[in-house]
Design a protein around this nucleic acid. Structure first.
Length: 205
DNA sequence: CACCAGGCAAGTA
DNA sequence: TACTTGCATGGT
């Protein structure tokens, strides 16, 4: 297995592709997202202009493998409407916005919640925002570092209060959490006896 | 067959 | 604020 972390981790070659992936991966295995992204690439739809122009029903059929395809097609369209109205479909224009303002604006888009907004901010726009996903929550819960009922913002605050405001650090940290989660912290395997974080924490105590 | 996967919105209490 | 439900495909 890899020893070093995956720097600048997120599958996606453009800012827009990362935004699309952030919506498509909602409660969905990344493998299924890859199939949907592949379909979009085949139809040259991975640009704001093209995806803005395509009919929503057609878009839905192309992203079908990602699951929840009707809702997600609507959510992508919502995001594109926002891009169209506020930024003339120019995604680089988001770079001019202050992080807290942009975050609030993204959260106004129906279908973009805290995790999707933060994924866009961190991975597409390189903003220092810690992304809290299911793996992150489960890992910190299993090791007794947070309460399982803690809210998204509770967990985010807990982490960011103890870490410097560094986008590269949050990028790497979250990437490692997802990798560790996939390997050792599955929902169906509550024991987690091989998790290296467990021995790490015991050694520190 | 059951369960799970890098959420979110809308409804209810 | 804190649950609950619908949304849907593909892998194990």
């Amino acid at each position: 297995m890899d020893i070093l972390g995956p720097s600048n981790w997120w599958p996606g070659e453009t800012r827009f592709e990362i935004c699309v992936g952030a919506v498509l991966t909602q409660n969905t295995n990344w493998k299924n997202v890859e199939k949907a992204i592949h379909n979009l690439k085949e139809h040259q739809l991975l640009s704001p202009q093209r995806m803005f122009s395509i009919e929503q029903g057609h878009l839905a059929e192309l992203i079908r493998p990602a699951g929840y395809f009707r809702v997600k097609a609507q959510r992508l369209k919502n995001f594109l409407s926002f891009l169209h109205i506020n930024h003339e479909l120019n995604i680089d224009s988001l770079l001019n916005q202050e992080t807290p303002i942009l975050r609030e604006t993204l959260l106004q888009v129906k279908g973009i919640g805290p995790e999707t907004a933060d994924s866009i901010l961190l991975y597409a726009l390189n903003r220092p925002v810690f992304v809290i996903d299911a793996y992150t929550k489960r890992i910190f819960d299993r090791h007794g570092l947070i309460d399982y009922r803690a809210s998204y913002s509770d967990i985010q605050k807990f982490l960011m209060d103890q870490l410097p405001l560094d986008y590269a650090l949050y990028n790497e940290f979250h990437a490692l959490l997802v990798r560790a989660g996939k390997q050792w912290c599955k929902k169906s395997k509550p024991l987690c006896s091989k998790c290296p974080l467990g021995s790490l924490l015991r050694a520190q105590a």
